[in-house]
Amino acid sequence: MSKFKKKANVKQDIPTSSMPDVVFMLLFFFMVTTQLRETSIEVQQRIPEATQLRKLQRKTLVTNLYIGKPVKVEQYGEEPKIQANDTFIEPSGIGKWVNAERDKLREDEREQLTVSLKVDSEAKRGIIVDVETELRKANARKLLYNTREFSKNNR
């Protein structure tokens, strides 16, 4: 009986004095991790899944190429296209693009440029091989096929 009475006497406030600190900490976390995307991706991106992922350590050395079916099909057609930065490029333009990306890096790091291919699952090998051939010619041979972590519900 007295049990219940005792409980009622307990102070039930949650201390809120540390809330601003918590909020600020979250705020700083998101401020630091945020990357405002300067390019909008114009191709479909359903990235395939894999298990054997490797992480890239130096993000400044990574540059992205997006490959997939254009989102605006009526404007650009059904065929998968290559997007670099803001524009669609043809495989023949890749050498030039690689050099432009290299110039953005520090001189001693130019050879370590890694190209991350973000390719839609439905894209065919053909276009990817064309890109790879151009990358080989441009001597940008470090390549990463961007994938998501494999989740158990398919395959």
Binding site: Q52, L53, L56, V62
Partner: peptide, 10 residues
């Protein structure tokens, strides 16, 4: 920035 990494041939 995660995925399968390979090195292309020369």
């Amino acid at each position: 920035d995660r995925g399968l990494s390979i090195q292309l041939p020369p």
